[in-house]
């Protein structure tokens, strides 16, 4: 279509340009307008549900049960921050919000560090079984976490980690590693061999090469991984549902108990859900380039 448009632009100044040119231009104009309209509608379909949740979180319980969030257009006075104030004042929910950080931050840091180390060895140190090990990691990429729930629950029970933040973090680290190694290894092997060898010639040990050359060069990949892993852990519910207790539960698990009476709990659930979304959305909007790259790189997770 773009080509057609270009052709037309060239044809126009020529006197006696073929009629088809004008027609096809018109068609392409209309077609393009139509496409834009369709896409705008699609985008609306994506935005409205989130917008609805946001508005619902800004109306009190009685307003939410009496009428839909869209009435806010006629009665904007209904908007209030009370729900958020209540939520923050709610010790349990606020604690769970903090817990989400306590889980997500270490789980992200550990995964990035461990994966970077392992990926360096898999990319730039020769050792027997390197191929096999890499393939195993690739295989583990799609491992359903359900496979590990029962055994790890037993294991954590034996070590007193069941129901602790440490346990939740460890589980996330384990299931974050295959993807993390896969992503970083892909990037590391793409670093020019000359660069590694130059460092080797310059007298650097493996550790120095890793720290001083590979890590700085791989910054974009590290950024992608960090964001991806952080969001993955932040957004988890299943792992925490199994391994966290009431005191260590992240926000998803804490709010889950309110699901039973959804209709009358909309204000609390919407507010909680939105609170839980604020961090990922901010991360996403600020670092969307890295996030998209991470998703593209980790197509198989």
């Amino acid at each position: 279509m773009t080509l057609v448009a270009e052709e037309v632009r060239i044809e126009v100044p020529v006197s006696g340009a073929p009629k088809r040119g004008v027609v096809s231009r018109l068609v392409s104009r209309l077609g393009n307008g139509f496409v834009q309209l369709v896409l705008a509608l699609v985008a609306l379909f994506w935005l409205v549900p989130v917008f609805g949740l946001l508005i619902a979180s800004l109306r009190d319980e009685s307003a939410n049960t009496a009428s839909g969030w869209w009435t806010v257009f006629t009665k904007p006075s209904e908007l209030t921050l009370d729900n958020y104030a209540d939520l923050v004042a709610n010790q349990a929910v606020w604690q769970s919000f903090l817990n989400t950080f306590y889980i997500a931050v270490p789980a992200t840091v550990l995964v990035v560090v461990m994966a970077a180390l392992a990926s360096y060895a898999l990319s730039w140190i020769e050792f027997p079984g390197r191929e096999t090990l890499t393939v195993v990691v690739v295989g583990l990429l799609v491992m359903p976490i359900q496979v590990a729930l029962i055994p790890v629950a037993k294991l954590f029970g034996a070590f007193g980690l069941f129901g602790t933040i440490t346990g939740v973090v460890l589980f996330h680290v384990a299931f974050g590693l295959p993807f993390a190694i896969f992503l970083l290894r892909n990037f590391f092997t793409g670093i020019p061999r000359d660069l590694i060898e130059a460092a080797r010639m310059d007298g650097a040990t493996e550790w120095v090469i890793f720290k001083r050359v590979v890590l700085p060069v791989a910054k974009p990949a590290i950024a992608s991984l960090t964001i991806f892993q952080f969001l993955w852990v932040w957004n988890d519910m299943l792992v925490a549902l199994v391994f966290a207790d009431q005191d260590s539960a992240p926000i998803t698990v804490a709010l889950r108990a309110q699901l039973r009476q959804f209709g009358t709990n909309i204000d609390l659930l919407a507010t909680g859900a939105f609170l839980s979304m604020v961090v990922p959305l901010a991360v996403f909007l600020v670092f969307q380039k890295y996030f998209v790259q991470g998703v593209l790189a980790g197509s198989t997770k």
Binding site: W46, V50, L53, L231, W234, N235, D236, M237, T252, L255, R256, A273, F274, S276, M277, P280, L281, V283, F284, F291, V295
Partner: peptide
């Protein structure tokens, strides 16, 4: 955007 938020949300 939905990829960034939790399945729970």
């Amino acid at each position: 955007m939905p990829m960034a938020i939790s399945l729970f949300a």
